[in-house]
Simulated scan of single mutants.
Amino acid sequence: MENHNIMLTSSEISNLWANYASDTMSICVFKHFLAHIEDTEIKHILEHAIDLSKQHVAIIADIFKNEGIAVPIGFTDEDVNLKADRLFSDTFYLHYVKNMTKGGLATYGAILPNVFRNDIREYYMSCISSTMELFNDTSKTLISKGLEVRAPYIPYPKEVDFVEKQSFLAGWFGEQRPLTGMEVTHLYTNIQTNKLGESLCLGLAQVTKQKEVKNYLLRGVEIAQKHIAHFSKYLQSDFLPVPMTWSENVTTSKEAPFSDKLIMFHIGITSSVGMGNYGVAMSLSPRRDLTTMYAKLLGEVGLYAEDGANINIKYKWMERPPQAADRDELTKG
């Protein structure tokens, strides 16, 4: 990276900081996955994923050191137990990477418009490019193994048509129109992400020793199951297929591969991604009953995430992110 005299903006420093924390977590997770992987094709995907995370961590650490910014602790070898038994199957690993790359692409795409310094912009452009490559490799592997779950099919439009009635937006009462392709897409996507979250929470609940964390994870399982039921109901009402479950990809291991600090951070990221997905789905679903549902479920996930943050604060697991100067405190006395 080139040296610059221009200071980092709030958006640049905060996103790099969050990026560093997330990638140090990913390194720990992928290390444990690689310690138990059997499928050579999936192993290649995991090696690619951990290599990208290591590159990101090294680049961000250099930027912070050059700027005189404290490098976050994030997560280290103390947060992963490579001797712990396998907790998830090889198939789960592949679905996990696919969903992490989807989240990464959405995150990097949102960050890039708010980046101003050339070196930081080039870094995030490279992140998007390399994550697209990993996403493509993972998708091709899922398809070649017959593991990819395609979104439902709908009829091809044969002619151009226009909406003529306000009932196109209805949904609470009376006759409901069929789901649009975009509505189907987001219902399907949110079922997929909630199924991954359900399996993740279920597996991690088996191994954590902290009762408060265990109860929090089991609550996450219940929320995911409830949300899956909501989304599935809409697909089934239009006779569309519901994606398969991944719960069988959780082993019976009781040995913790990760620290409770890492587990809670991971679930926090999952919740954040879920809220982002619901927000996008709500903005692209014209039917009023769908927007109302998404708003209600988004609020529930928000409360869940807040309770998770309180647990992190209670056990001193949350590093303070970069923030504006506290002028009230500075002007006292």
Rank of each mutant, 00 (worst) to 15 (best):
C28R: 06
Y234P: 00
L112Y: 12
K145T: 04
Y124I: 07
S53F: 04
P241L: 03
L218S: 03
N81M: 08
E248R: 10
M275G: 03
Y156V: 14
Y294H: 02
W17H: 10
M100Y: 07
I13T: 08
R121C: 11
D238T: 02
L235K: 00
F116H: 12
D39W: 03
V250S: 04
T107W: 03
G171A: 04
I191W: 08
T245I: 01
H266Q: 10
V213M: 03
V29G: 03
D79K: 04
M125Y: 09
P155V: 06
E47K: 12
H32N: 11
T180D: 06
K102L: 15
A49L: 07
L147D: 07
F231Q: 00
P113I: 12
L8E: 01
P155Y: 06
D85K: 15
Y124H: 09
E41S: 15
G274C: 05
M1I: 14
Y124D: 00
K165F: 01
E319I: 04
P321F: 12
P113H: 08
P321I: 09
E255L: 09
D119R: 01
I73M: 06
L34T: 07
E133Q: 15
D137L: 15
E175M: 10
Q55V: 07
N19D: 13
R177L: 11
S283E: 09
R86Y: 13
Y20H: 12
F173D: 02
M7R: 14
D79S: 04
I37R: 11
G109V: 04
E122W: 10
E47C: 13
S259F: 06
F30Y: 12
D307M: 13
A70G: 01
T245W: 05
H227M: 03
S11L: 05
L179E: 03
G276K: 04
L8V: 05
M275A: 04
I313T: 13
G68K: 07
G104I: 07
T270A: 13
A281D: 03
F92W: 06
K158N: 05
